[in-house]
C-alpha cells in the first residue's frame, strides 16, 4: 500500500488540529470499534466558516482527510462547504489507496454533522439544508 506525498504531508503535519472551546457547531462521527472517530469544531460568523479544528482517532488516511477537509472549508460560506464531497478531498490529496477510500467519507460526514449542530443550536432544522447523512462508519455498518 502506498500513500501519496500529500497524504503523508497532511498526516505528518496535520492542519487545524485541536479544539475550539466556544465553537458554534461540533460534530462527531465514526466509532471506536471500527477504528475511526472524527470530531470537527466550527466557528461560524455571518454564514462564513471563520475557523475550523479537528481531532481524529484513526489511520493515516483518516488524519490526512480530516486535515485536508478543514483546509478546504476554512473561510468558506456554509453553502460552499456543504458542496465539498469526499471525492474532492481525495483529489486534493492526490488520491488514496482503494482500501482507504471509505475513510474519506468520514471527513465529509464530520463536517456535515458539525454544520447540522450549528443549525440546531440556532433553532433551525438542519435536514433541509444539510440533507441526510450518516454519523456512522458506513464501511463497517456499525452504530
Amino acid at each position: 500500500m502506498i500513500y501519496s506525498e500529500k497524504v503523508m504531508d497532511h498526516f505528518a503535519n496535520p492542519r487545524n488540529v485541536g479544539e475550539i472551546p466556544d465553537a458554534d457547531g461540533v460534530g462527531e462521527v465514526g466509532n471506536a470499534k471500527c477504528g475511526d472517530i472524527m470530531k470537527m469544531y466550527l466557528k461560524i460568523d455571518g454564514g462564513i466558516i471563520t475557523d475550523v479544528k479537528f481531532k481524529t482517532f484513526g489511520c493515516g488516511a483518516a488524519v490526512a482527510t480530516s486535515s485536508m477537509a478543514t483546509e478546504l472549508i476554512k473561510g468558506k460560506p456554509i453553502e460552499e462547504a456543504l458542496k465539498l464531497t469526499n471525492k474532492a478531498v481525495i483529489e486534493a490529496l492526490d488520491g488514496l489507496p482503494a482500501a482507504k477510500l471509505h475513510c474519506s467519507v468520514l471527513a465529509e460526514q464530520a463536517m456535515k454533522s458539525a454544520i447540522a449542530d450549528y443549525y440546531r443550536r440556532q433553532g433551525v432544522d438542519p435536514t433541509p439544508i444539510v440533507g441526510e447523512f450518516s454519523e456512522h462508519c458506513e464501511a463497517c455498518g456499525l452504530d
Binding site: 505528518a12 482517532f57 484513526g58 489511520c59 493515516g60 483518516a62 488524519v63
Partner: peptide
C-alpha cells in the same frame, strides 16, 4: 485511544 496505523506511520517518520 490511538490507532495502530497512525502509530506505525508516525514511528516510520
Amino acid at each position: 485511544g490511538i490507532e495502530g496505523e497512525s502509530l506505525l506511520l508516525s514511528l516510520d517518520l
